[in-house]
């Protein structure tokens, strides 16, 4: 696809702009900013990836992963501002999830240890982990507030912090996992996953595209479960002090 052809795709931006202006939705500014940002960010990533693939050096792959983790942490930490040390908890979770998934993929020779595979898969893993973290933290902080009386009741009866927070923790973990599990149930029926669609459009064999997509789906399921559970168990102790009191 040439840049000229791509520029014609901007018609798809003009339609929502026109609708927003006509219906006075006030979304023109945000739409323009989002469009410009996505063009700049994706083009920049494209050029960076071209350079990294050509250089084929481990340090560049590592730098890309560090950049992804930093951006994901920055984005997710706002949702867990009430949890002490949330930044490091997110970093540890993302690093662990990335190491686990890449370890399995490369260790079992499912994918080659090449930038062309490591970087896009890392992007999907860390991106998915970030979304899961945001969903988890959103629900967990809300649960803690709404179940404060129950948490203190369990503490007052001689329960430990882990026992007191158990229900909030399990509810938040479950709630954060529901979207991914539900979307996997209808995948291929309602929508074709973006990566698979991209491969097919680019001319790949559909069966091969499906095989790769399945690999990614299973990978993301692990990512989701590990992210929520790990973040949950890293976060809950900081809600209490050494006297087993629930902090404000």
């Amino acid at each position: 696809m040439s840049f000229l052809t791509l520029s014609l795709a901007l018609v798809f931006v003009l339609i929502p702009l026109f609708l927003s202006k006509t219906l006075k939705l006030g979304l023109e500014k945000d739409t323009i900013i989002a469009t410009i940002r996505s063009i700049i960010q994706l083009l920049a990533v494209g050029y960076v990836l071209t350079f990294v693939f050509a250089a084929d050096h481990f340090i560049y792959i590592l730098l890309m992963i560090i950049l992804m983790i930093t951006a994901a942490t920055h984005n997710a930490r706002k949702k867990g501002a009430t949890i002490r040390g949330i930044t490091w908890k997110l970093v540890i979770t993302f690093v662990f999830v990335e190491a686990l998934t890449q370890g399995i993929l490369i260790g079992f020779k499912i994918t080659p240890a090449e930038a062309q595979y490591i970087i896009p898969i890392s992007g999907m893993v860390i991106g998915n982990s970030m979304v899961l973290s945001i969903l988890f933290l959103n629900r967990f902080t809300a649960e803690i507030e709404s179940r404060r009386d129950e948490t203190e009741l369990i503490l007052s009866l001689g329960g430990t912090p882990k026992q007191a927070i158990h229900y909030s923790l399990i509810t938040a973990i479950k709630a954060s996992l529901i979207p991914i599990v539900e979307s996997q149930k209808t995948i291929g029926l309602v929508q074709l996953p973006g990566m698979m669609s991209g491969q097919i459009i680019a001319g790949a064999d559909p069966i091969q595209a499906v095989q790769f997509q399945l690999l990614i789906l299973f990978l993301l399921l692990t990512t989701a479960a590990v992210t929520s559970i790990m973040l949950g168990f890293l976060s809950y102790p900081t809600l209490f002090n050494t006297r087993m009191q629930l902090l404000k």
Partner: peptide, 23 residues
């Protein structure tokens, strides 16, 4: 009070609040 294990203290000093929170 700080010399007690918190769980031991709370079992020994029972608390029933007006709100009567139930699980």
């Amino acid at each position: 009070i700080n010399q007690y294990d918190p769980t031991e203290l709370r079992r020994n000093v029972g608390l029933a609040l007006q709100s009567a929170t139930m699980l």
